[in-house]
Every structure is written in C-alpha cells, then in structure tokens.
Design a protein around this nucleic acid. Structure first.
Lengths: 341, 341
DNA sequence: TTGTAAGCGTTATCAA
DNA sequence: TTGATAACGCTTACAA
C-alpha cells in the first residue's frame, strides 16, 4: 500500500486500506459503538498493522481542545511542589490529559511569560501557584475565558485548593507559645514573591497579638527566594538586643536553611532556639534535628486541584460553592522544644 | 469588525482588518523582513489591538513540528531529577520549545505508556532517563525516526549525557578503602528499575576486587524503588556475621534513608558505620550528618542534554562523536570516616 | 451503518 | 512585495 509521504500513517491511509471512508475510521476511533462490529474489527486490524497513531495537533485543531493543561509552580526543586506535580500528572493522565509544568522561580515576569506560552499553545485549562495576589493573571485568564484554578493560595476569584494558611500558622505559633516561648521571629521570602508567606505571617502576628506578646517590625526577616540563604538574616537576628527563642520559617526549605545557619553560629536546636517549618516535605524527617512543621498533603492537593479543573472543563461551569480548606496538621518533631531559661 | 465565532482572533481576522492576505500576515509573523515595513507596522498594530496569538496546533499541523519535547524521568520528587528538569526547561524555553515532563516512578510499563503518549502528541524529540537498559524504547524511537537522547544513563545507541557511573563509584569506593574500611555493602534499587544502579554496583565491585577485598553476593542489598525503605535491608545487614563498616548507597535518597535506619538501630554515623551517597542533591548538606557523596551537576546536565537534542532537531543528524562523560566529583562531608577498630 | 464535504488556523508554493 | 490556494490530519453535520 502506498502511504502518504509522511512517516506516520494517517486516518486516510487506514481508510483506504480498510475500504471505508475516513469518517468511518474517525467514528470507530471516537465512538466505536456507532460502527458495525465487522467493520470496526477490520479497521482495528489495519490500525494495528500500521501502528497508526492519532495526530493530536490535527485533532486539537478540529475539536478546539488540546487535552493539555498548564501548571505553573514557584520552584520544581521544592519537594512540596514536585509532590504536588505528581498528583497533577496522575490525575490528568487518568483522563487523557497531558500537563505542561513550568517553574517560574518566584519571578513575576516569568509567571506571565509562561501563561502567555500556555495561551499560545491553547491549553484547555491552567493550574496556578503564583506569587501575584493582585490577581492580574487571574483576570487575564478570565478575560480569555480559559478555566483556571489556584493551588496553595488564592488570587482573584479563582477556585482554590489550599490549606487555611492563616489558621495553620496561627496553630503552629500557638504551639510554640504553649511551650513557653515569648520571643519570636519569622523568616520568609518577600511577600511580593509569595502571598502564602504573607498569609502565614498574618496568622503568626495574630496569634502573638492574641496572646499579648509584643511584636515589632524586625520580627519578620526576609530571605531571597532564589538562594534561600539565611545566614545573614539569622546572624542579625541572633545578635539583636532581643534574640528570638523560636523561629517560624515560612516553609521547610527556609527552616532547613535556618537550622544550618544557626548551627554555623554555634546554636543548638532546639536547646537554644526552636525552629518550625511549613509543608512537611518528605525530607523534613531526615534533616537534623527532624523538623517540627505544618503538613500540607501535596500529592492529594495536586490531584484535587486537577480534578476541580477537569470538572470545570467537562461541565463548563465553575464550582457553585467555594472549596473547603484542605486539612492541615501540625507535625511535632525534634526541632522545637521549651525555651532556654 | 466581525471576528470569527471563536474567542480568539485568527490570522484571517487580522488579514481582513489590515487589508492584506493571510499569506502576508503569516509572512510578517515568520519572516518580517520579507514584508514592506509599512505593511508590517499596520499588521502589528492590528495584532496588538486584538491581542492575536498564533494557534500552535494549526502551526504544528502545517509545519509538522510541534516545538515540543518530551522528557521522561524516574521520579520528580528526587531532587536530582527536578534540578535536571529545570535545566531542560530553561534550555528548551530559550529556543521556543515547551517540555512535557513525565515521571515514570521506576515503572517500565509507565515508561512505555508515556513514550506512546509523546508519540501521539508528535513531540519533536525525547529526552530519556529510563530503567530499561535493553534499549527497546530506544529502538522503537529509532524506528519511528524520532530524535532522542539519554540522560544519566545510556541505552541502545542513543547519544547520552551522563557521568561515568562506573568510574565515579570506583572512585567513591576507593576513598572508603583508603580510610581503612575492609567490609562493605551497597544498598540500591533493583537493576531492572535502574541501570544506573547496576553500573554503580559494577564500579563498586571492580574497586573491591582491585584491592583484593573479598566480595559476596550479600554485599548488594535491594530496596524498593517506590518506598526506598531501608529498615529491613539495613537490619539484616547489620545483624549478619560480617556487618559492613561502610555502606555505599546507590543515590542520596537511599543514603539518607539508610542513615535513618541505622540510627533507629542505635548506630552512630560515621563512628560505627560510614555512609556514602550519589548525586549530591541540594539536601545532602543539610541532613545529619551531612552526606559524603558523588556530585552530578544535574542542572547543567539537563541543559546539555537538551542542547544536544535541539542540535539534532536543527541539523537533522546525530552527533558525530560520542559525548564525553560529564565530570563527577567526590564531595567529602561528615557521613564518612575511619572504620571503628 | 456509512459516505461526502466543509471546516479548524496555519504554512508554503506559485503566480502576479 | 503581495495574493490565491492547496495542503496538513482530523471532526462533524448532513445526506445517502
């Protein structure tokens, strides 16, 4: 049989050899029940024989759907996001979707660039974990009518799958207070790079205030979202007039870096300083000392967000009610303890 | 102006409003120099006004190239692969390519499934880090004439970017021998799940033999590639008649799990047992004790592999010479030391 | 149950 | 420098 010049056989080649029209082949591929059994079997044989594979670009052009979703994360090499990415992939694959993952490295410019990329590629929907709390990305997507959901933190009026960041931090802080701590600091990335960090700081502050613990502006120390290097910040903190006995890190990676920095300065954890993180990445229990932290179930959140998005794609409508917060959990390990006296 | 029913304007809408043919718009988009400056400016204005975005599916169908590459990794949540994925993404994006990342979770069946997915989507090329040393995936790709390169370990006759796994393990083992160790074990995943592990075991064995250190089959202990749980393996090892004083883990994650398991059994590291890993993931220096390990420059390797692939896509030919091995490096930290006497 | 033919939004060839 | 027009490989009315 003479194939089209292309290496891959097309629906047309199959149709010719099976002595049916291309419509029938297409029908067999998409709604096999609408085609006579015999005919179908004949077509299937030819398909197998030539190893025919549907051309997705052509299909996308004809159906106006790419069966692709875009997923923007702050950083691939933070395990909380890669765990989550696994969830997204698994759920997507289950429904025949493929996912483009793009790591924006906490850079607003890159976030926008990547959304633009996704739009060119006409992804069917987008999952967003972005800094931008202003929601101009969310707004653009709304304008372009492309379904999107937030993961880890909400922006604009998109549906969002996340823990209650404020409450979770409140709980963690309260735990430290109950241990007896009265002098606190928080280390985190710039709020403009992570609204999650801002919310966690909010919960932290609220809790201190509720317990009549004085707060001062220096209680938040900013670290670079690229390097997460905490040496300088920790040094300044510990040399201040009122060094903290407990440090709340905005995520586990920051916590781990904080511990390294503290140790370099000769402090013991938790004897001299307690450190608490956020995320409970798989590595949290392996560092030394094992990290007390707030658990977010990354993999499950990834699946859920995807499932919400796929629902929107299927039904064409946004979920009626706001999605309830994902359950968080305080995991107490050995990086926290009573304050030194 | 009346737009097509679709939400997104098409090249046709632009052409109509700019009073030129669609061919001219297309030309302007792809070879602006071939179009009169004035005409171009007019077109550009209309494009900006309507926020026109090229439809990639249509372009892909017409050009027979998707500007997409597929990338299969064993596990996203292993930092060595996510580091590497960053490299792949960065290099790809630089040249207008988007990448599909798929994590096969050390599962051969999934690897094949994902390659099949990629082929349906007609990716332009594939980067592979797969278990399968037999090379049947490589062979299929060859058959389908789709360019591919290996990353981290070679299979079949694909170009490969990797360190010399055998030599690197040899070096690491020799370092342990020079510290005075005479009793060894290696922990790793099944060779069928990771050919990298097989090669590292090979280097390990060679080195022992070269130094007249007796080896026995029990010196390799297999751990599950999913859980990486080492408790059982470590326990059996340490309760044997000849417990090792040095353990070579096939990668850092295994090393970290091994250390946890040893500690649970009451062993101190490196006083009782030295542990050495492979990869030097960012986390390696933060665990306790900080890990002695073999560095693979993941990010750079990702970029290089992508660059090799893009070269093939551009020139249409495979590289003439085999790619020289990437430089590895032994990073000595505190998880290794002299054996107990 | 099957076939015909008109899209889908580009690129690319050829002619003007 | 531009314009007509035929691909590209599929889906989907509509007709048979």
């Amino acid at each position: 049989m003479t194939m089209s010049k292309s290496l891959q056989p097309t629906i047309r080649d199959i149709a010719r050899e099976a002595k049916v029209s291309i419509a029938t082949v297409s029908r067999f591929l998409n709604m096999p029940e609408k085609v006579r059994k015999e005919t179908g079997e004949r077509i299937q044989r030819i398909i197998d024989k030539h190893n025919y594979r549907c051309n997705f670009a052509a299909k996308a052009l004809a159906t106006q759907r790419t069966k692709t979703i875009g997923y923007i994360i702050p950083a691939v090499n933070n395990q909380i996001y890669s765990e989550c990415a696994r969830g997204v992939q698994d759920e997507a694959q289950l429904h025949g979707y493929q996912v483009f993952i793009a790591s924006a490295e906490y850079n607003r410019q890159r976030e926008k660039q990547m959304v633009e990329n996704f739009l060119e590629r006409r992804v069917d929907g987008i999952i967003l974990t972005v800094s931008d709390s202003l929601g101009d990305i969310a707004q653009k997507l709304y304008q372009e009518k492309i379904p999107a959901v937030n993961l880890f933190n909400k922006q604009g009026c998109l549906p969002c799958v996340s823990v209650d960041n404020v409450q979770a931090s409140y709980d963690a802080t309260e735990y430290l207070i109950k241990l007896g701590h009265r002098s606190f600091a928080m280390l985190g990335v710039p709020f403009t790079a992570s609204d999650r960090c801002r919310m966690r700081y909010e919960g932290f502050l609220h809790c201190l205030q509720d317990h009549d613990i004085p707060t001062h502006p220096q209680s938040f120390v900013q670290v670079s979202s690229n390097t997460l290097d905490c040496s300088e910040g920790v040094e300044k903190l510990m040399n201040s007039s009122n060094p903290p006995t407990a440090i709340f890190a905005s995520n586990d990676l920051v916590a781990i870096n904080t511990i390294s920095a503290l140790r370099r300065l000769g402090f013991e954890i938790p004897k001299d300083v307690s450190v608490i993180g956020f995320d409970d990445i798989p590595m949290a229990k392996h560092v030394w000392p094992p990290l007390t932290t707030v658990l977010q179930p990354g993999y499950r959140m990834g699946r859920q967000a995807t499932s919400v998005l796929l629902d929107i794609l299927r039904t064409g409508k946004h979920p009626e009610e706001t999605i309830p917060s994902v359950q968080h959990d305080l995991i107490i390990r050995e990086s926290s303890g009573v304050p030194p006296r």
